[in-house]
Design a protein around this nucleic acid. Structure first.
Ligand SMILES: [Zn+2]
Ligand SMILES: [Zn+2]
Ligand SMILES: [Zn+2]
Ligand SMILES: [Zn+2]
Lengths: 140, 140
DNA sequence: GTTGACCTTAGAGTTAACTCTAAGCTTATA
DNA sequence: TATAAGCTTAGAGTTAACTCTAAGGTCAAC
């Protein structure tokens, strides 16, 4: 049985974050000491690690709540339930990716166009491009 | 001279957002009516469009504040001042991009591994992978 | 039997960029 | 002149996921 600081160390999450996850219904300590100290079992640890892995994969805490409710009762859920959540997340990630890639391209073009030198910015092509709405050609 | 709602329509920003930008020092109405109504000149409009373009490019409002102070006094700033801001933004974008691409790859692998069917999730490879810390995916 | 580290809770603060509300003026139209 | 639409301000609310604080209780060690 682990105390919260030991679980924190094992998972790389802070004790604050673990309490925050508990408050939001994601995890729980199976046991409490007489004085109210949380004690975590191996099963608790695995659940926290599941949360952490899902978090790293990009799932929101709300998504993870759903995944956890599948996890504790797999019989009552289908693979489609799982792929629905995963697919939805992939679409979100793809949308953000497209946005960021567009920004990346714009920023790279801006940097290519500017001398980046120490003389004054009266001729700066980055400022000109931003003033011109990034040239009317590839507006979306 | 445009009223705030007219500027909003021309720029595609809401009047609320325009007042918010003003409160944060990004824009201003050159004139006010006797009763205090904001009135915007062509120069004001162009400044707002600059802000909007910079926003679409990914710059934060703080970045845009810096870009605007260069814009109003180009003689006192260098191209390097401009590229410093742009370069910093590009690094941020690249970092987020890398993170999202990793998530995308993980999500795609998860989806490939799961049948997505209607039978129960006791055998679901997505759940297994999340339980295993994605170790299967990492090895691929 | 006293440090000092660790634990508890409720609740406030953080971040960015909005978004909205309330209460009261102003302006245009009928 | 009455009505509706639009303007003003200060300030509160939203979102997500923490992050931290205060005030106090507990525990192991010396
Ligand atoms: Zn230059
Ligand atoms: Zn330049
Ligand atoms: Zn299946
Ligand atoms: Zn499956």
């Amino acid at each position: 049985m682990l105390k919260i600081s030991e679980l924190a160390e094992q998972t790389g999450l802070s004790a604050h974050t673990l309490r925050y996850y508990e408050k939001h219904g994601l995890i729980n300590a199976s046991n409490r000491s007489a004085a109210g100290y949380r004690f975590y079992t191996d099963l608790d640890v695995r659940r926290v690690q599941f949360v952490k892995t899902a978090r790293n994969t990009g799932f929101s805490l709300a998504d993870i709540g759903q995944l956890l409710s599948i996890r504790v009762d797999k019989q009552s859920h289908s693979c489609q339930d799982v792929t629905d959540i995963t697919q939805k997340k992939l679409l979100e990630v793809n949308a953000k990716l497209a946005e960021l890639q567009s920004m990346q391209q714009t920023l790279e073009l801006l940097l290519e166009s500017c001398c980046g030198g120490p003389e004054n910015a009266t001729h700066c092509s980055i400022m000109e491009a931003l003033d011109a709405g990034l040239s009317r050609e590839d507006e979306n």
